[in-house]
């Protein structure tokens, strides 16, 4: 069973990302959307924990939400961007989805 975790809150004012990273199992996937995309940037206080997750999980970020926030540069190496149809593909490729709200 593989799970897709989505995070839609900024890691700086909500512990959704932290809890997601604690729970997510090896082989699962994490997708940052909406204000969750701020976690995908290099050089933040959360960069190390996201890099740790990248060792045994896939990490994705929704491109339209990155664009809206001017966060296109300095993406952490290894994070893949997806568009809306890629988002849909991810939900169908996984057995279930947990939304960390």
């Amino acid at each position: 069973m593989s799970m897709l975790h989505t995070v839609n809150k900024s890691p700086f004012n909500n512990d959704a990302l932290s809890k997601c990273l604690q729970c997510a199992q090896p082989g699962s996937s994490i997708l940052f959307i909406e204000d969750g995309v701020y976690a995908s940037r290099e050089g933040t206080t959360f960069t190390d924990s996201v890099k740790e997750a990248l060792k045994d999980k896939q990490v994705y970020v929704l491109q339209p939400d990155l664009d809206a926030r001017g966060m296109n540069s300095s993406l952490i190496d290894g994070i893949k961007t997806v568009d809306y149809s890629g988002f849909v593909d991810l939900t169908t490729e996984h057995d279930s989805v947990q939304s960390w709200l």
Partner: peptide, 23 residues
């Protein structure tokens, strides 16, 4: 302050999320 600093970032493009780009 805090996440408020994100309001001022350069290069915001909101067409794809369908919201007004008030930056």
């Amino acid at each position: 302050i805090d996440d408020g600093v994100y309001q001022l970032t350069k290069g915001q493009k909101t067409e794809a999320i369908g919201l007004k780009n008030f930056s």
